[in-house]
């Protein structure tokens, strides 16, 4: 990014297309998005296609996609919800924080792996 901050010309709310709520509820910052194989329909806006293309190589969370698109999370959710509705994107609930791994199991695994040699 350039160092000089610019007053924004294109506001993020354009992604909402004038709606107040995304078409599908339940999106979170950490909701994982990954592209389905289906091409996004042509009626959708270019930014939808860009999100879809961004996700084609692999899965990203909403917050990551937002960072890549340089949009706020709230605006990205609108795009993602549209794509999910169109059936060319899938979303999964965020992964809950992992529980503390039982150290003994790891140790045993380590022993086993060493024993492989």
């Amino acid at each position: 990014m350039t160092a000089v901050p610019r007053r924004r010309m294109v506001p993020a709310y354009l992604a909402t297309g004038g709606r107040t709520r995304p078409g599908t509820a339940g999106f979170d910052r950490l909701t994982v998005l990954f592209a389905d194989r289906a091409e996004p329909p042509r009626e959708l806006e270019p930014e939808h296609h860009r999100l879809w293309e961004l996700l084609r190589p692999g899965a990203l969370t909403v917050v990551e996609a937002a960072a890549h698109l340089r949009l706020p999370v709230s605006a990205t959710v609108f795009l993602a919800a549209d794509l999910v509705e169109a059936g060319c994107l899938r979303a999964r609930a965020p992964i809950p924080r992992a529980q503390q791994t039982d150290r003994s199991i790891v140790e045993r695994l380590l022993v086993g792996l060493r024993a492989l040699r």
């Binding site: 294109v10 042509r42 270019p46 296609h49």
Partner: peptide, 24 residues
């Protein structure tokens, strides 16, 4: 901005699916 429409090519018909070039 990602919300800026990409140029259409002459004779390309209605807004083609923006190609991957659009994605940063």
């Amino acid at each position: 901005s990602v919300l800026t429409p990409l140029p259409l090519r002459a004779g390309a018909g209605p807004a083609p699916a923006p190609t991957v070039q659009a994605v940063p």
